[in-house]
């Protein structure tokens, strides 16, 4: 059974921008000036950006969680932490079930490879056999509806085509926990409708969806629960309508 359990999660990024990242600076470790707010320093005097702090929540099967909040509120970082990409510095992330992640626009696909090659790679990543990979290839081909583009390098795709391929691929492996960033809404209306059909199949099958978005309509349509992120912390957690009302009244 798919569950997500996040306890007191904190994530911060060391800032190695420009020359601060070089050996010279590490050797010299000269750092002055006052730092405040979300910037802190660790004991080795590195500048840290506090991306998430004290985030706790748990999700049961069938829940569809939306993450809402302004730019830099920590939505994408939280999604990445749920996908196991950023391992926590404090706290714990416990996810049961196969994870499907649609995070980056590039989706870990290689731009120079064709759509078909990328599908094969994803199959190999999931340690699938030849028959299963061919099946996935067919499934994604039908869903993404790319026609001859499937055999062309991904860099020739429009953003809509890219999203269709990525979405088809991420859902083809039947994830029990689907984690999506807001960009996937880049598809046109007919794609969104088809995506929804496919999603319903996954989510109603007692699985979990976590999605981040700026758009209130999408939240209303897709989510049963909202988490309002602000400055890396959870500001509000509750049913979609309640959180959305509070959020919109602050933002508007």
């Amino acid at each position: 059974m798919a569950t997500i359990e996040v306890t007191d999660l904190a994530i911060s990024f060391p800032l190695y921008h420009g020359d601060a990242r070089s050996l010279k600076k590490t050797v010299r470790r000269s750092l002055d000036g006052k730092l405040s707010g979300r910037f802190t320093q660790d004991r080795r005097e590195r500048v840290l950006v506090q991306a998430l702090k004290g985030v706790s929540f748990s999700l049961q099967r069938g829940e569809r969680l939306g993450l809402i909040g302004g730019n830099g509120a920590g939505k994408t970082t939280l999604l990445r932490a749920l996908a196991g990409i950023y391992e926590p510095l404090e706290g714990q992330v416990l996810v049961q079930g196969r994870i499907g992640a649609l995070l980056d626009t590039s989706l870990g696909m290689n731009d120079d490879m064709s759509g078909r090659e990328n599908i094969r790679l994803r199959g190999l990543f999931h340690a699938l056999g030849e028959v299963a990979i061919q099946e996935i290839e067919r499934d994604v081909e039908t869903f993404a509806d790319l026609g001859p583009f499937l055999d062309l390098p991904i860099k020739t795709y429009s953003s809509g085509m890219r999203v269709r391929l990525a979405f088809g691929l991420a859902t083809a492996i039947m994830p029990q926990v689907l984690i999506m960033d807001e960009w996937f809404m880049a598809g046109d209306a007919s794609f969104r409708e088809r995506a929804k059909q496919r999603m319903i199949g996954l989510v109603e099958g007692a699985e979990i969806l976590v999605v981040s978005s700026h758009q209130p309509e999408i939240m209303q349509e897709w989510c049963t629960r909202l988490l309002w992120m602000d400055q890396g912390r959870v500001r509000m957690d509750g049913p979609t309508e309640d959180v959305l009302d509070a959020y919109l009244s602050t933002a508007g």
Binding site: E87, V93, I99, D139, I173
Partner: peptide, 27 residues
């Protein structure tokens, strides 16, 4: 997707591929 019976059987095979993974991350 999944309209064709053969495909469904195969997808089931993908679905039961291995035990349900558990990811437990902490410092």
């Amino acid at each position: 997707p999944l309209q064709d019976a053969g495909a469904r059987a195969l997808r089931a095979e993908i679905g039961v591929n291995g035990p349900e993974p558990v990811m437990d991350l902490r410092p």
